[in-house]
Design a binder for these strands. Structure first.
Lengths: 104, 104
DNA sequence: TCCGATACCTCGCCTCACGAGGTATGGTGC
DNA sequence: GCACCATACCTCGTGAGGCGAGGTATCGGA
């Protein structure tokens, strides 16, 4: 699978991964991998910058924790993040249906 | 809908548009727009370079025609293009299912 | 005669996924 | 004790590609 197919969809995936409970970056990567049944094996160089972007845009908020001596940056969705996720889900539906219609 | 979501999927769309009958660039744009129910209104600056890429890669082949005084470059799928389309369809299925699983 | 649709093109910008490289800790096996 | 892997964070540079802007030309209708 080419790399570029992800472009523009990553934010939605990360937001969705954080929807029901906060997580730190590394855990988000694992969560996405597990939930996608091993399809999305996202490198850190992809996910960390994405999280910084999302925080810069106010869609997530981070807090440093120290779980068993390890520093972790735990992210949670903000209100704006929840709304953005809802929008992205709709956009995905629209996009997906359109692609489906063309490819069919 | 953000522009980048298309990235990596455009080739599949263009190939699919050419699957059953050849068309020139402008017609491809209209075909995609119609088939996607007005979702994909692709600018020429997107489609023409894509067609050149596809031809460079041997997935389509073009031929100049002159229909009623207007020059047109008509594209058709090559054998390799048909095979590439089949692969892209499978990749889309995989990608789409994975996104669905994460967003659900 | 003007204008919009048709029909082609290129150039440069911008975004963003990712590979590579770096740092540091905890646990397991030898 | 030490190597090694997983965990956990980061940044920088590269490259791909969609698109806006701008250019050319023809045809048909108001």
């Amino acid at each position: 699978m080419k790399a570029e197919v992800l472009k523009g969809h990553l934010d939605a995936l990360v937001l969705a991964a954080l929807e029901h409970e906060p997580a730190h970056g590394y855990a988000i990567i694992q969560r996405l991998r597990r939930r996608s049944d091993d399809i999305f094996r996202l490198p850190e160089g992809t996910v960390y910058p994405a999280l910084h972007r999302l925080e810069r845009d106010g869609l997530v908020k981070s807090r440093w924790t120290a779980a068993s001596g390890r520093r972790r940056r735990v992210y949670r969705l903000t209100r704006a993040g929840e709304e953005a996720l809802a929008v992205r889900r709709l956009e995905w539906r629209t996009f997906s249906r359109a692609v489906e219609a063309v490819l069919a």
